[in-house]
Design a protein around this nucleic acid. Structure first.
Lengths: 110, 110
DNA sequence: AGCTTATTTCGAATTTCTTCGAAATTGAGT
DNA sequence: ACTCAATTTCGAAGAAATTCGAAATAAGCT
């Protein structure tokens, strides 16, 4: 996967997290751990309309940051940790000072 | 600073980075290091209208991720590393599995 | 089959983002 | 003062995001 594709993907994931409601939502899911959380309890925690929550969940799912699993009538949502770790890795490797202080392979002179 | 404020700030910064053009822009600035980059060369690298670039730069500056310094007629832009490190720290501490695997102070049971 | 609960999809209104070109600004040189 | 170069601000158009309520779907229970 080349840098351009990685960057596009990272941008989509950052955009998904770059909304207060979705970031709160994602944080709740991370803290819920393996057990995850049903959509209904997320709605109570966040205090927004069910359709609005569904929309935000969909955005997070599209980027891979969240997964859903059906348990009878309720849908359990979980944070997808490896995706977040990859994203943090991208930021640290490509967009952080420590990585950039030695950009031997890059186009340093412009 | 409480978690709610931190979260709002993180969301704004993530939103700022969650656009392909701005993420490319930020990455270029990180790789430029201390020397930074004049706006003009950024425009050439990105191939967008000057006014569009100015708009995106403004968004990054508002969140603190980028700073500008005047040198005669040209403006030098630089990535603000500590801000990015704080953001990555927030994600790692509040939104990553390792931190969440021991959420003793949180609301684990839902 | 019909009912209840849980969640999504649809439709619509409002707001915000993205992009550009034209015009204004800023700073230096003549 | 005039001009040139670099950049921002303004104004506008089209695209996308956010939010909600109402209606549709999905899954199980009686």
């Amino acid at each position: 996967m080349d840098i351009s594709m990685k960057l596009e993907q990272a941008a989509k994931q950052l955009e998904a997290l770059g909304n207060p409601t979705r970031l709160k939502l994602y944080r709740i899911l991370v803290r819920a751990g393996e057990a995850g959380r049903p959509v209904g309890t997320l709605q109570e925690s966040l205090g927004i309309a069910a359709s609005t929550l569904s929309h935000h969940l969909h955005r997070l799912i599209l980027t891979g940051l969240v997964t859903q699993e059906r348990q009878a009538t309720t849908l359990i949502c979980r944070a997808n940790y490896p995706i977040m770790r990859d994203l943090i890795g991208f930021l640290a490797d490509e967009c952080c000072a420590d990585a950039a202080s030695n950009p031997a392979a890059g186009e340093a002179a412009a």
